[in-house]
Structure formats: structure tokens, C-alpha cells
């Protein structure tokens, strides 16, 4: 028998061949040193994988949130965002009003003050002209 491919030997080590294929390779290995070396190298690698597989992993306590709670949480977030946006709009509007009111008051006082000054000046002019 010709040497089986390394792919076949890899499957042989995993015992993933048919019974007849396994038997053929068993017989071949008795006479072929090269394939025996390949098989032992593969077995050494796989035993290293087994050590790696057996290592204990510190698994965190994963808190899995059920779907319903998740959707409720999203709904709460959306509601909060809408509330904040609404609040911001209302506050912005009332600020605008306050500024507008302040402007109106300023204009009122400014005009009155100008009238007062104008009146004062007029009185003065009239006094001068009277004199």
C-alpha cells in the first residue's frame, strides 16, 4: 500500500475514517516508519490541544437580559429622550418670551426716557425763549 495522505492520517488519528480505511492504515503503519512518525507528531499536537481544552476559564457572571425587559428598557430610553427634547423646546420657548418681554420693557423705558429728556430739553428751550 502506498503511504496515505497526511490528510488521511489526520482523520485516522481522530478515528474519523471508515472501519476498512482504519484497518488498512493500521496495517500500513506496521511497516512504514515515516507514517508512524507523522502519526506520533499529530498525536502529540492533539494531546497539547487537549491540555488547552481542559484549562479552566474564569467565566464572568453574564447577566442575560430577557427580550421583554430589553424592549422595556429601550422604550424607557426613548421616552426619556422625548421628555428631554420636549423640555428643551418648552424651556427655549419660554426663554424667547422672557427675552422678548425684556426687550419690550427696555424699549418702553428707553422711549419714555427719551421723551423725558426731550421734554426736559423742550422746557429748557421754552424757558430760554421765554427769557
Amino acid at each position: 500500500m502506498r503511504c496515505p495522505s497526511h490528510e488521511q492520517l489526520s482523520a485516522y488519528v481522530d478515528k474519523e475514517l471508515t472501519l476498512s480505511q482504519m484497518q488498512k492504515i493500521d496495517i500500513h503503519l506496521q511497516d512504514c516508519l515515516t507514517c508512524r512518525i507523522e502519526v506520533s507528531r499529530l498525536e502529540r499536537l492533539i494531546s497539547n490541544f487537549k491540555v488547552l481544552a481542559r484549562e479552566s476559564i474564569s467565566i464572568p457572571n453574564i447577566h442575560l437580559v430577557p427580550t421583554s425587559t430589553r424592549s422595556q428598557r429601550w422604550a424607557a430610553v426613548v421616552a426619556l429622550v422625548l421628555l428631554l427634547a420636549g423640555g428643551a423646546i418648552v424651556l427655549g420657548y419660554s426663554n424667547e418670551n422672557t427675552i422678548a418681554t425684556n426687550n419690550e420693557e427696555f424699549e418702553y423705558y428707553y422711549n419714555n426716557h427719551n421723551n423725558y429728556v426731550r421734554n426736559q430739553n423742550t422746557d429748557f428751550i421754552s424757558l430760554v425763549s421765554w427769557e
Partner: peptide, 30 residues
Amino acid sequence: HDLEQLTYQEVADVLGIVVGTVKSRLFYAR
């Protein structure tokens, strides 16, 4: 296969590939 200890068939089912592909990919990976 080598760490989670699944069989060739199970790996094929998980990845949606045929057993022959599992065999060949495993060989190249090793």
C-alpha cells in the same frame, strides 16, 4: 473539533459545510 471536542459531523452541521471540507480544513489548520 480540537478544543470543543465536536465530531466531524457536528462541526459540519455547525458551520454548514460537508464533512470532507471539515477534514481538509482541519488538516491545513493543524
